[in-house]
Design a binder for these strands. Structure first.
Length: 457
DNA sequence: TTTTGAGTTGTTCGA
DNA sequence: GTCGAACAACTCAAA
């Protein structure tokens, strides 16, 4: 009997333990066939923006090609589609890499129950996860989860992880019927990075050779090509973090990069232990924080989202997000701080916008990252740490190249003055004046903090 | 057992 | 111009 390999966020063939398990399972039942299935979930599809949709479809097409055109793509609720496929082919088992997010955990439990209640009960087999160390495996002496990054990191290193999984033997990919094909995706204005497993591995190779040695110095520079650009590949599982970790030595750049991978694992662990933190402040006393709302707040959000706040580094970041579905991490912090501390808008509005548009949007990293900036999360930034968009722009985009790349109205300003266009004797008329005064809003943000400061639960 | 000190990502102000 | 202090409260592990 054939087995089913249900791909979700593991769109690759190498270093894929679930694939090995699927092959083994079909072989054990005297068959060699594996059905590679991807189910496009309408719930996730409809909440995705064009860049995110395009990336997924392109990545699926890439995987399809790697499977000699055998990827079986279906559109619908996995709770019904997966059992239907399993029943149709008489599957011996359905194989997945475990999902640790709130939605994925629930979905997989429902699919598992449906599979087991079929006339021919079929097991849902979880092998591996999208992490080097599965969420929940690293904990303190008393078994409770870590709330601070550095102790987590040390424990995570001590825990260790397996080497990359072996390549599968010959797999007989099998497509049982015509799939639903790929949904239509609208063309987006800018091109996406090359998707797929091969491109991810090549990008990793190039990054290691050309940029890893300067990574610790340059990773905060949005104007330079100093980062790995592997976030989307990690989100969709085109590459497994274990594959990357296996290539890292003890050089300073490698150490800093390993810590970045560990942040992803830390946040997955936090969300796993506190699933409600995807929607609510992790620290409940932040429930009563006085965020702005109403028409004025909506207009401010609109200005932020469309990149028209009048603060160049903020607008450059928000426009990069819309154009490419990606934003440099340093700039993510700057725009998040601006939404929260300067516009006094609820972090959840910003987090939702990011999730909709980021090709690498990962619920755990995204929500916990926003909460970190807001101050309500784990290991949170102190309330008084309020980014000054001009200072940050001058420090991390020292020549203004990043701003000019994404804000064409400012291209005539040839140097770092681009970060404060309002100071010019003749500011560009096509670019908006700042919608708020940062110095004023900073004091407002500090005053609002008194509501939660020192407050008991 | 209790104490102590360190903890991704900052800014401003006054000496 | 540079530099140190101040800006909370809490987690965690080493002393």
């Amino acid at each position: 009997m054939p087995s089913v390999l249900w791909f979700r966020r593991d769109l690759r063939c190498s270093d894929n333990p679930a694939l090995l398990a699927a092959v083994k399972s079909s072989h054990a039942s005297g068959d060699a066939r594996v059905v590679p299935l991807y189910v496009i979930d309408p719930k996730l599809w409809e909440s995705s923006g064009e860049a995110r949709r395009s990336y997924l479809v392109s990545s699926l097409q890439n995987l399809d090609a790697a499977l000699d055109g055998h990827l079986y793509v279906r559109f619908g609720d996995p709770t019904t589609v997966v059992p239907e496929v399993a029943h149709h082919i008489g599957a011996v088992s359905v194989h997945i890499a475990a999902d640790y997010g709130p939605y994925g955990t629930r979905r997989d439990a429902h699919v598992e129950a449906a599979l087991l209640s079929m006339a021919q009960p079929t097991p849902l087999v979880r092998t591996g996860s999208p992490y080097a160390v599965a969420p929940g495996r690293v904990s303190k002496e008393d078994g409770s989860p870590y709330r601070v990054y550095t102790p987590f990191y040390k424990a995570w290193l001590r825990h260790g992880w397996r080497p990359p999984a072996a390549e599968p033997d010959d797999v007989e990919w099998f497509t049982p019927a015509d799939g639903d094909g790929y949904p239509e995706v609208a063309a987006i204005s800018a091109s996406l990075p090359q998707c797929g497993e091969a491109a991810a591995l090549e990008r990793w190779r190039t990054f290691r050779v050309e940029h890893l040695s300067t990574y610790s110095d340059n990773r905060n520079r949005p104007d330079l090509p100093a980062t790995s650009r592997l976030s989307a590949a990690l989100k969709w599982g085109e590459v497994h973090p274990r594959t990357l970790l296996a290539d890292l030595d003890d050089s300073p750049g490698a150490e800093v990069f390993r810590r970045e991978l560990a942040w992803r694992e830390f946040y997955a662990d936090v969300l796993h232990h506190a699933p409600a933190s995807a929607k609510e402040p992790l620290d409940s006393k932040w429930q009563r924080f006085p965020w702005n709302s109403g028409p004025t707040a909506d207009a401010a959000f609109e200005a932020w989202a469309s990149g028209k706040t009048g603060y160049p580094i903020v607008d450059a970041g928000m426009r990069q997000l819309l154009a490419e579905g990606w934003m440099h991490n340093r700039v993510r912090m700057i725009v998040a701080s601006f939404l929260i501390k300067d516009l006094h808008l609820d972090w959840r509005r910003g987090a939702a916008w990011f999730m909709r548009h980021l090709i690498d949007g990962d619920l755990a990293s995204n929500q916990q990252g926003w909460q970190w900036v807001a101050g309500s999360g784990t290991d949170a930034a102190p309330y008084y740490r309020i980014f000054n968009p001009v200072t940050q722009g001058r420090r991390f985009d020292p020549d203004g190249e990043y701003v000019r790349r994404y804000v064409p109205e400012l291209r005539s300003i040839g140097n770092a003055d681009v970060h404060e266009p309002w100071l010019l004797t003749t500011p560009p008329t096509s670019y908006p004046a700042p919608i708020v005064d940062h110095a004023v809003e900073r004091l407002d943000a500090l005053a609002r903090y008194d509501v939660v400061k020192g407050a008991a639960e």
